[in-house]
Nucleic acid binder design. Structure first.
Lengths: 341, 341
DNA sequence: GTGGGGCTTGATTGCGCTAACCTTGTGTGA
DNA sequence: TCACACAAGGTTAGCGCAATCAAGCCCCAC
């Protein structure tokens, strides 16, 4: 506990110290209404001297305005969501809004809890990852009466606005690229995450596109926990032991893909001649690998930016109709591990 | 904007719907005070049916209690702070407290702004990275009248409590280990971050310990921005070109160290025979590298846990004197790149 | 039957601030 | 010289909820 345990300061204290009314102090601190330069200076000096910090709780209650935007995401421990946050921040910094982040760990019941908790602070908007929510969560979003943007994914119906990419399409595009390059014996590796709907959709899009050409995934492997890079190595070793005839490995994220790549290079296997590889996400990390992994970028920064822009625009002018169903197009990057015919 | 734009619900609405007073509804929703099972059930049903979400702003103002803990960190884009957050979360989840994260980008003026913003919501405690703050920030922390824990670093004087490691000592320990292993021609690579005080302290500790043995750093290189892995490669290539006699490279973080390692292996250089390597942080990523980089773990999870425990304990019982200056001891991990004599 | 104790519920008040209105003082133009 | 506009600042009334205290109710022991 820090030193001086006196009663916390209020507008009243600043008012007493300067001789002007509380209202005038409030006006000065918010830069609102007409205040003479003289009193403005005096009030600011006193507030600073006393160390007064306005109580936003009281302010929010009185004005019925809260400059917070709830941002609800599944995880902070891979690079994808921090980058989305960066995009959100970039835009919100140009406004009076502030993001507040909640993490769900990919669990619907936690999402519900976090959402409830955040809504109880009456934010001005919500940015939430995914289109899949519990009925209760969806009901809360509907009833909140504030702008809602669902991000990352556009394969489904949003509550209000949405910004993302089609993961189904991303999977299918990658499948087409792989087939076009001439690979036919394909293995898949991913996370053991029934609740990661976007990974699931990519997988579905992938297998469907293969099926159209009469190709089936010949082996698959899932992991959970641990270092993704190490897991990528392990799983790849296992899979090639089990299915030595594979000529392509598709990884549900770049990190395990990088692990697989490092393993294959260690083993002296010809990549992409004997075996081709691809991941997903285009993480920065890949730039430093001995060979560049084929991947697809997920437009993370752009998703964050657009989502924040939608919130800001709606708050700015609720009447205005703006584009609020945005599907971005991820670009495939062939790198050095997906040979083109 | 979501559908029904009616006036937001209040306790009053639930009260009207059930026929009991607002106070009783409040009691039910907070599980506070004696309420008969019958009315409890009735009220909960009505609240759920209406989709009522309590207004914490009003609640906080009335009760003068806010169950938020402000967590202020420099960045989310490397793995170190998310892991600290995980530790904080683990502990706070066992309490009624909730973390709220603010990011400073290693800039003092932004730290000040973020702190001011967070304090204006009157949190119950603050966890803030580092011991270096602007005078204004320190004044705010002092005047806040709530538990403050400064984390990561213990080389300095805290405002209140602190939990971390001595980065100066971490640097010096690594220097000793390197010398003991017989290396003498040492290069250093790090981030171009005058404001990362912990990196600076490690560097100082490192050079001082070397100096004691009459050894000086022979070359150094700093980077900013871009993929750390790629930068590690580039800088290492440059440095070895410039100073081919180096026999050890010390990196200020594991990510650039990993880049350097991959580069040296590519070049067929004998690691650790010809050149030894070490990084800092013990990131999970290292597990998947072809060779394990020597490093030092920064006790990130534990720092988060302990910090949260201190906050929780102080709020629980402000009188109780608890250990609030905790210096953890990082353990050095030799991996495969720091040969021992 | 009756007084008292515990359980349950209700009424009042105010948290710190801001929206909306109101008052005062000053300068300006006809 | 006077009316009037407008800038500068004050007054009043809540925002939605929880602390506090008071009141109602029921049941049991004596």
């Amino acid at each position: 506990m820090t030193s001086d345990n006196k009663r916390p300061l209020t507008l009243r204290d600043v008012s007493d110290a300067t001789g002007v009314s509380e209202m005038t102090v409030s006006r000065v601190l918010r830069n609102r209404g007409d205040v003479s330069e003289k009193t403005r200076v005096k009030v600011l000096a006193a507030a600073k001297e006393l160390g007064y910090v306005p109580n936003k709780i009281a302010g929010a209650l009185a004005s019925n305005r809260v400059n917070l935007v709830a941002v609800i995401i599944p995880s902070l421990s891979n690079m994808v969501f921090p980058e989305v946050l960066t995009g959100i921040n970039e835009v919100l910094e140009t406004t009076a809004l502030q993001p507040v982040v909640g993490v769900t760990d990919y669990r619907a019941e936690k999402e519900e809890k976090v959402l409830y908790e955040m809504l109880s602070w009456r934010p001005s908007g919500v940015i939430i990852a995914g289109l899949e929510h519990s009925d209760a969560a969806r009901a809360m979003l509907n009833a909140a009466g504030i702008p809602i943007v669902e991000i990352m994914d556009t394969d489904g119906k949003p509550v209000d606005a949405m910004v993302g990419i089609s993961h189904r399409r991303a999977g299918s595009e990658m499948a087409k690229a792989i087939l076009k390059a001439g690979y036919r014996h394909i293995g898949f590796m991913g996370t053991k995450m029934p609740l990661d709907h976007r990974a699931r959709k990519r997988f579905e899009g992938f297998t469907e596109a293969l099926a159209k050409e009469g190709v089936e995934i010949e082996d698959r492997n899932f992991y959970s926990g641990g270092s993704a890079l190490a897991k990528g190595r392990e799983m790849t070793a296992e899979m090639l032991e089990r299915s030595p005839d594979l000529d392509f490995l598709y990884y549900s994220n770049d990190m395990i893909g990088a692990g697989g790549l490092l393993y294959l290079l260690d083993q002296g296997i010809d990549v992409p001649g004997q075996i081709g590889l691809a991941g997903f996400n285009d993480v920065e990390l890949l730039q430093g690998l001995p060979r560049k992994l084929a991947t697809m970028d997920a437009c993370r920064l752009e998703i964050g930016r657009k989502a924040a822009e939608i919130i800001a625009a709606q708050l700015d002018n609720p009447e205005e109709e703006i584009e609020n169903r945005i599907t971005l197009t991820p670009t495939i990057s062939y790198g050095d591990t997906l040979k083109r015919r």
